[in-house]
Simulated scan of single mutants.
Amino acid sequence: MSHNKDGKNRNDIKPGLNVNIVLKADQRIGKLTQGIVKDILTNSGTHPHGIKVRLEDGQVGRVKEILE
């Protein structure tokens, strides 16, 4: 089962994970912001643009990478 940790599957994302997200304001330029997941905001199991999360510092964006 090849399945990379690109942040599109809700099951891959848990509070406390270190992730790179794209903030709404940065979507056009694709700038990544690193942080720790506090809350998962997307209810569906998958999302084509990445699962939306809130970081511990309060920023909200879509997960682009899950950092090991």
Rank of each mutant, 00 (worst) to 15 (best):
10 R>G: 10
10 R>E: 12
11 N>Q: 15
11 N>F: 13
11 N>P: 04
11 N>R: 14
12 D>Q: 15
12 D>I: 10
12 D>F: 14
13 I>D: 14
13 I>R: 09
14 K>I: 10
14 K>H: 14
14 K>L: 14
15 P>D: 08
15 P>K: 09
16 G>E: 15
16 G>A: 12
16 G>K: 13
17 L>E: 14
17 L>P: 15
17 L>Y: 12
17 L>A: 14
17 L>C: 13
18 N>Q: 12
18 N>V: 07
18 N>L: 11
18 N>A: 09
19 V>L: 09
19 V>G: 08
19 V>H: 06
20 N>C: 13
20 N>P: 09
21 I>E: 03
21 I>S: 04
23 L>R: 07
24 K>L: 09
24 K>E: 08
24 K>Q: 06
24 K>M: 02
24 K>D: 08
24 K>A: 06
25 A>T: 11
25 A>F: 00
25 A>H: 03
25 A>P: 01
25 A>D: 07
26 D>E: 11
26 D>H: 10
26 D>K: 09
27 Q>E: 15
27 Q>C: 03
27 Q>S: 08
27 Q>T: 09
28 R>K: 13
28 R>Q: 12
29 I>Q: 07
29 I>A: 04
29 I>E: 04
30 G>S: 02
30 G>E: 06
30 G>R: 00
30 G>N: 06
30 G>P: 03
31 K>Y: 00
31 K>H: 05
31 K>C: 00
32 L>D: 04
32 L>E: 01
33 T>C: 08
33 T>K: 10
33 T>V: 15
33 T>P: 10
33 T>I: 15
34 Q>L: 02
34 Q>E: 12
34 Q>C: 08
35 G>A: 08
35 G>S: 08
35 G>R: 07
35 G>D: 10
36 I>G: 00
36 I>W: 04
36 I>T: 10
36 I>N: 03
36 I>M: 03
36 I>Q: 03
36 I>Y: 07
37 V>C: 07
37 V>W: 05
37 V>D: 03
37 V>A: 05
38 K>L: 11
38 K>G: 06
39 D>F: 01
39 D>A: 00
39 D>T: 04
39 D>Q: 06
40 I>G: 03
40 I>M: 02
40 I>D: 02
41 L>W: 00
41 L>D: 01
41 L>K: 00
